[in-house]
Design a binder for these strands. Sequence first.
DNA 1: AGGCGCATGTAAGCCGTTACATGATTCC
DNA 2: GGAATCATGTAACGGCTTACATGCGCCT
Lengths: 182, 182
Amino acid sequence: MSVLGHALLGLLSRKPATGYDLAKVLEQHVGHFWTARHSQIYPELGRLEEAGLVRHTVIAGAGPRPTKRYSATAAGKAAVRDWLRATAAPVDPKEILLRVYLVNLLPPAEAIEVLTVLRDHHAAMVQTFEGLASAQAGPVGFESPAYGDWATLSWGIEFERGRTAWLERLIAGLRPDPDDAS
Amino acid sequence: MSVLGHALLGLLSRKPATGYDLAKVLEQHVGHFWTARHSQIYPELGRLEEAGLVRHTVIAGAGPRPTKRYSATAAGKAAVRDWLRATAAPVDPKEILLRVYLVNLLPPAEAIEVLTVLRDHHAAMVQTFEGLASAQAGPVGFESPAYGDWATLSWGIEFERGRTAWLERLIAGLRPDPDDAS
DNA sequence: AGGCGCATGTAAGCCGTTACATGATTCC
DNA sequence: GGAATCATGTAACGGCTTACATGCGCCT
């Protein structure tokens, strides 16, 4: 299933909503890292329903067509949790952020595991990029045709470090209190 | 013209290359932030040629079809520089990195201006996101449905801060030496 | 009376990926 | 002889954006 499908399923696992509601969330709240329009959302809801992962009831509302309130079925809720638990580090950048966005659908212990896999992935990327950078000798001059390579690689390092630190902070926030020092 | 078109034009401004060469660059060197496949590149080169921005000569080489070496025309080189100088902050994330990647096609003074516009854009985003974050009261608990919003927003802040710092470092590296302290 | 927000749907088109298609040269 | 690399092109398909289409209820 598509990344968008998992996003909708995750939101509907929290609480029922109309397609219009979901469109608002995916245009605004989640907007720092991702957007989706209603023209994508309505067909995707249809596909999720065909797959038995969501269900709708018709409610009172404005508009020429019936207003539909969708909710996740038991199978749908299980599907999001299974997707969150999948250990392979996701390739699609927005899928990474979506996992974090939805991670509290899992109990804290499992959430920590998910975040740890992601942190390890980014920490490994820091190593990889630093290796590439040290293969070139020092900072490259502005006149060099390799300036762009060097500059964007140094961004890559900055990015992966930031990701790692951010995930580390989230994990630290979830670890159970050590209780005492005795 | 598309972002890919500017990328190809920028690379060809540096030195002539075959479509195959360009495909290798866009799959490997530039790969930390972007990739493009040959199936996109060949048609785009055709479009650039139609627009008079690049030109090709047939050279000796392997393969069932003629091997073409492309180079940017004077009009093509001027077009990339104009695009780089355009002051509006680009919306497409990969366009931002492409500008940095190609920024040394401009003389240092103009390059600093381009980088400064980008830095100011990201610095403003830091302000915006910090405003959103302080609107909510403190860090949101894991159990809250707003946990995901809070977590991804804090990533947004981390990201924009990192971008700003990175661009600031690039700018600092380009500023002419103060020469002395008297 | 007009504009905005609610609410759902479809169509055209671009961008990008994967896969199909072809064939010469060079190295093992 | 076979595999990798050089080299160019097309086709099918999915994701996403923009635009078209419709119409009710509420607020000013």
